[in-house]
Computed example of a mutant assay.
Amino acid sequence: MKPPFEQVVEIHGATVLRVCRAVLGPRPESEDAWSETFLAALRAYPGLPPDANVQAWLVTIAHRKALDAVRAAGRRAVPVADVPERHSTIGIVRDRDDALWRALAALPERQRLTVAYHHVAGLPFREVAEILGGTPEAARRASSDGIRALRSALGGARPASTVPAPPTAKGTP
């Protein structure tokens, strides 16, 4: 029996937000993608099979909504009267977080998304490969290359991220 949708949001909401932020960065667009993910999921939830992996399903929806936001931003011109003289720090919590987000954003797209889906959302490489296309081995390699690049960019240290470890559920592969 499927849990009520409110419980699905409570259980998986943080994971979906972390995925949206990993793809879009710590900007308001990531929260918009989170909202759009759950609106789309709410419409489709009644038809979801009871044995479906809800987390993987939600991460797939979040992935698509985040990519939609990236594409929409690329089509939208933002007029400004004057060019700002300094970089905006809106949404940046700390310098360490800023460095982590910059390093993550600098990764090639496949590495960035694989790191986000596997290390942030906690999906196994098999499911990451299904979302992005390709094989689990290719996803594992992209993740490894991405983590190596992040360590290099952050001075070789393992970053103490503000992102909590993903929850583990019984019976999850």
Rank of each mutant, 00 (worst) to 15 (best):
91 G>D: 00
95 D>V: 13
117 Y>G: 07
145 D>Q: 15
133 G>M: 05
129 A>C: 06
141 R>T: 13
160 A>S: 11
166 P>N: 03
152 S>C: 11
152 S>L: 13
142 A>L: 06
117 Y>F: 15
123 L>Q: 01
110 R>P: 02
150 L>N: 00
156 G>T: 00
141 R>N: 12
144 S>I: 07
92 I>E: 07
95 D>N: 11
172 T>V: 13
89 T>Q: 14
110 R>W: 08
164 P>K: 01
101 W>H: 11
168 T>P: 05
135 T>Q: 00
131 I>G: 05
163 V>A: 07
134 G>Q: 02
116 A>C: 10
102 R>Y: 08
108 P>R: 05
113 L>H: 14
102 R>S: 13
107 L>H: 04
122 G>E: 02
137 E>H: 09
108 P>W: 05
118 H>K: 07
105 A>P: 04
127 E>Q: 14
133 G>R: 05
127 E>V: 09
135 T>Y: 01
148 R>L: 09
147 I>H: 08
168 T>Q: 15
104 L>Q: 02
119 H>G: 09
127 E>D: 13
157 A>E: 14
140 R>W: 07
143 S>Q: 11
163 V>D: 06
164 P>W: 01
139 A>Q: 00
148 R>K: 14
142 A>P: 01
93 V>E: 15
162 T>G: 15
136 P>R: 03
167 P>L: 10
138 A>K: 04
109 E>K: 10
125 F>S: 07
143 S>K: 07
146 G>Q: 01
120 V>S: 15
107 L>R: 00
129 A>G: 05
131 I>F: 06
119 H>K: 09
96 R>M: 09
173 P>R: 12
88 S>E: 08
124 P>W: 05
118 H>L: 06
116 A>I: 05
89 T>I: 13
124 P>H: 07
172 T>I: 10
88 S>W: 07
170 K>C: 13
170 K>R: 15
144 S>A: 13
118 H>P: 00
104 L>H: 03
95 D>E: 09
125 F>R: 06
123 L>F: 02
114 T>I: 02
158 R>Q: 14
122 G>P: 00
149 A>G: 02
97 D>K: 04
103 A>Y: 03
125 F>G: 03
139 A>R: 00
126 R>E: 15
120 V>Y: 15
102 R>F: 08
147 I>N: 06
154 L>Y: 01
157 A>H: 13
91 G>F: 03
105 A>W: 08
156 G>D: 03
170 K>T: 12
87 H>F: 15
125 F>V: 08
115 V>Q: 03
128 V>G: 02
131 I>N: 05
160 A>Q: 12
130 E>D: 14
88 S>A: 14
106 A>V: 03
102 R>V: 08
108 P>M: 04
149 A>S: 06
